[in-house]
Simulated scan of single mutants.
Amino acid sequence: MRRSKLLFVPFWATYVFLYLPIVVLVVMSFNSGRSAYTYEGFSLKWYGELAHDDRVRDGLVNTLIVAAGSTVIATVLGTLLAVGLARHSRSKLLDAIALMPAVLPDLVIAIGLLLFYGLIALTLGLYSTVLAHGLFSMSFVAAVVRTRLANADTSLEEASRDLGAGPVETFIRITLPQLAPGIVAGALLAFTLSLDEFVIAYFTIGNTEQTLPIVIYSMIRFGVTPKINALAAILLLVSFTAVIAGQRMTKIGEARAQD
């Protein structure tokens, strides 16, 4: 049956609607003029100004600290959660609870964490944001690793146990290598989510520190400039790289599983 070319119109229209603003943002980041709406010529000066902006540099360092710390927490806890749900629990209720942070609005999580930190008298700072982002990203890591677990060969684990290996040794030598592509993909996803996350960081970081998304928010209140476009373009590049790397690792893992 011959497909009508009209069926591709909404397909491409959707892609244009999604990505045309991103293309415009990247193009305007190379604008030689100060206007964010009128292109006056090609220039890299706004990227150079970013390198000399202390506020942006401090925000970037804080963002990388939060993203790295929360990624470690989310990867470890998310992997253990996925293994526990897949191997030691068959409760749909626990599955729903484990994945709930991934579907709850960021604002609800942020307010809940802020109230909890106040209840336990925890001073807000980078560490409180690291914990918050780790909790938020843990569900995404668990979902990715659980998908990988569904394709894992359980007979290898059974053979390991039959040969006298304990649960911990079996997990380290058999289960963990099989899950490695999924774990890496989940870690990259957690890093990307933390890198771009604004709402939870805004509520849990306090008044003494700022992450890069908060810095961008404070800058954009006075209007969009090519400097902000350049900063957003860099974040887009990092995010796209992490997502593509995560997808690549997932495909490699699936190909090895089929072999």
Score class of each variant (00 low, 15 high):
A36L: 09
Y37E: 12
Y37P: 00
T38Y: 13
Y39P: 13
E40W: 13
E40H: 13
G41R: 00
G41H: 03
G41K: 03
S43A: 14
L44I: 11
L44K: 05
W46H: 11
Y47G: 07
G48D: 01
L50K: 10
A51T: 12
D53R: 08
D53S: 14
V56C: 07
D58E: 15
N62T: 11
V66T: 06
V66Q: 01
A68L: 15
A74M: 06
G78M: 01
L81V: 08
A82F: 01
V83T: 05
V83R: 07
A86W: 01
A86P: 00
A86Y: 05
H88Y: 15
R90A: 09
I97P: 00
A98G: 00
P101Y: 07
A102Q: 09
A102E: 03
P105T: 02
I109Y: 10
A110T: 07
A110L: 09
F116A: 09
G118W: 00
G118K: 03
L119I: 04
A121E: 12
L122Y: 07
L122P: 00
G125D: 14
G125K: 06
L126I: 15
S128D: 05
S128L: 08
V130M: 08
G134P: 05
S139L: 04
S139W: 00
V141P: 00
V141H: 02
A142R: 02
A143H: 04
V145A: 01
N151Y: 03
S155L: 13
L156G: 09
